[in-house]
Design a protein around this nucleic acid. Sequence first.
DNA 1: CCTTTTGTCGATCAAATTAGTAGTGTTTAA
DNA 2: TTAAACACTACTAATTTGATCGACAAAAGG
Lengths: 148, 148
Amino acid sequence: MLSQKAKYALKAMIALATQEEGNLLQAADIAERQNVPRKFLELILLDLRKHGLVRSQRGKFGGYALAKPADAITFGQIIRIMDGPLAPIPCASLTGYRRCADCRDEKSCAVRRTMREVRDAAAAILDGTTIADALGAGAHEARAAIGA
Amino acid sequence: MLSQKAKYALKAMIALATQEEGNLLQAADIAERQNVPRKFLELILLDLRKHGLVRSQRGKFGGYALAKPADAITFGQIIRIMDGPLAPIPCASLTGYRRCADCRDEKSCAVRRTMREVRDAAAAILDGTTIADALGAGAHEARAAIGA
DNA sequence: CCTTTTGTCGATCAAATTAGTAGTGTTTAA
DNA sequence: TTAAACACTACTAATTTGATCGACAAAAGG
């Protein structure tokens, strides 16, 4: 399951992407537009900043902006920051591998094998969808259609 | 994330599938083989029985068996029973749809659209992989290769 | 310098979920 | 009738989730 936190983070990033280059958006603005608790959103933006996805400016007329072009930020990056690995189970994760305590033989584990397939499929979509794709309603589909 | 419960359920079903037709396997046996807490496993098997995936026999020499052929039971069925919908977010679920409280316009929500893609990809794999596939190490891949 | 506005950060918290455990009952075969 | 097995209910401890609060720091403007 995607946590509320990750969902809010995605929505916030999309909101930031609607701004033109260099224009700051304030937490309170984003919170109101996206219907998200303001203080909670601040924590999320802080976290995104610490991971280099947004930059912030303090003080009067401060706010947040994307730290990179919208087409260089993927859903996968954001979700991994907020919720951790994409894999349904740690033993099937590339970025956060952990052995199952109860596993007798990982090599022959059908659960692991199938969960790896699920992970790969999810990662292909989430690492292949950028914040820029999220802006135009049909952008990703269009991209997919031409095989990009 | 796949819960321990769902993981144990999958492992238990695979264990039951190794038995020949009509042969019962006891909870204690499965628990030991698969390294799963026995009492917890009993709850899981009970749940699987109530959903018609296993049958049980009480009393001495009782135990559990699959209620249907192994190739008629999918990972998706088992996971939905234990953990609920496959979709990462309720608004992207087919089997357990629920609107997001904070959503202004679902139709244009890029998060939802992308999570639906993820759901579809996961469902394709999990509803396409059966307990029978899990037995032979390469069964599913073989099946996939011939386009079945 | 002072005030206002805004991000930063630590602490705290209530509710839900997860991963079990315990114990009692009920059925069945020998 | 007894031992072995599933059935069912109840409980609980730990963790995670989804926040909220308040003090602090910085930046801009008068």
